[in-house]
Design a binder for these strands. Sequence first.
DNA 1: CACGACGGGG
Length: 615
Amino acid sequence: MSSLRSVAKHPIISLLDSATSLKRLKQIHAQLLINGTLNDPHLLGQFVATIAFNNPTNLSYSSLVLDQCDNPTLFTLNSLIRVYSKSSTPHKSFHFYKRIAESGNKVSPDNYTFNFLVRACAQILSRETGLLVHGSVIKHGFDNDPHVQSGLIFMYAEFGCLGYCHKVFEEIPEPDVVCQTAIISACAKCGDVVLARKMFDEMPERDPIAWNAMLAGYAQCGESREALNLFHLMQIEGVKLNEVSMVSVLSACTHLGALDQGRWAHVYIERNRLKMTVTLGTALIDMYAKCGNMNKAMEVFWAVKERNVYTWTSVIGGLAMNGAGDKSLELFSLMKKDGVCPNEVTFVSLLRGCSVVGLVEEGREHFDSMKTEYGIEPQLEHYGCLVDLYGRAGCLDEALNVINNMPMKPHAGAWGALLNACRMYKNMEMGELASRKIVELEAKNHGAYVLLSNIYADSYNWDRVSNVRQIMKAKGVKKLPGCSVIEVDGEVHEFFVGDKSQPRYDEIEIMLGEISRRLKLAGYVANTKPVLFDIEEEEKEDSLCKHSEKVAIAFGLISLKEGVPIRIVKNLRVCWDCHDVTMMISKIFNREIVVRDRNRFHHFKDGKCSCKGYW
DNA sequence: CACGACGGGG
């Protein structure tokens, strides 16, 4: 009897698996038509489904074959709904659903149909369609099918409708692990990780996928520490970790800038011989790049077997972030040579690369090529990059020109890029214009006020500085508290401005004094020019030596072995003074210091910084 | 004759 099975599967699938080109596919098709194999509607269905499944990026041929078929079976139509629901054109799933609906009573949808259809709705993010399909699910009586139920939860989570997710979930008398996992994932996706964790803890039994859902939930919400805690718990509980788990773990390390733990995760992956999927490889490269170890990122990049757009984009962006703009251009041409097509994100990274090294001409050319060569319409972010490109290079008029001529309404980011350039080149009038525009768009954008006050302070215009401050107070604009993170022995330490709760605060204080003393000996005069806007009034006096990154550096100096680079991640941009001071510390203490800023890296060594004042 | 060849969560 087992031969029956293999006979049914054998002829088509094995043939199609070897058909990599369209030409070969057509040959096989012709051959099957001649020998009559495709007269059997079931085999024809299998044929269509298999080519669709094997060529997810090019589904046109399978639809073509189907269109030539008078009476497709439900199996065939379901298969096509399924592959289209996962494709880049999920709305086409409905084309096949229509064929079912309009077939009279020849074929009627089943639970499979609705499972795939619900996922197509989730993909196209259309609530109206989703609700309509949900209605059909109920009408056809498939709302009891666990596959459809988990699909509905997934769909409503994609829509951000957590209430509907709960509604669906509560109507399931005895939800299985899959539905429970779906609801946990939905809670996390919609921003309620606490509830997700509660439901996770209440699960009668958790399989590895449920653990991964919780882990990914934390990682995606930016609850990186919780993600790492859960990762450790998983090891204690003996949960089997796989490549999917490690993507979340690496992402958490990336967020925190926790290079040691990231390295540890890398070792874990190798020791357990986890499958190095493209996603995992990219996560690993991204981790090294965003934790400031670009050399290692490149090493992994060349070592991985498979590289897709994400992989290339990650490395191009990493190089840009680390100030190696010329290198990111190089990688971009290699990527094209490799036959990988850039997407809109690739161009954001590439343009940033041009920007950090001042390659205005090249940047402009690449910007133009987006549309002409790749048919990608530049989006807001790309115009923002272009403004930044001109602005950083000192071409302020050109930058303003970009804003005035962009085809859509300029967003706060575009004006922000201009404002930053105005700060760099001390252009007060244009800076005022830019900040006014930003505040019009986003009344509570604290960054605009901070930059504007920096411009005023830079020209000793204290009246206007205090004026900005008053406006902020009146409007209730809160600045983001500065926070720096440093990892020591695999433990992540956070420092906020004026936070004295650290257990080793006394030692830190002593070290800060020591730094101060040695800086003065080296001829450093405190830079009181910038009135530091990211701190509270009360702390203003000793603010200059208490900025969170300085405290973190002091902590690094007392707790890390000599010769070990100090790596800091900051949630804001480094201020001028901290930048100066850090350069000097790197020389005086003969220490490499790597700071990950809000938008780029600063590698301090021998009194110099890799950004060369460009930030 | 009618079975079976598509499903779910990270």
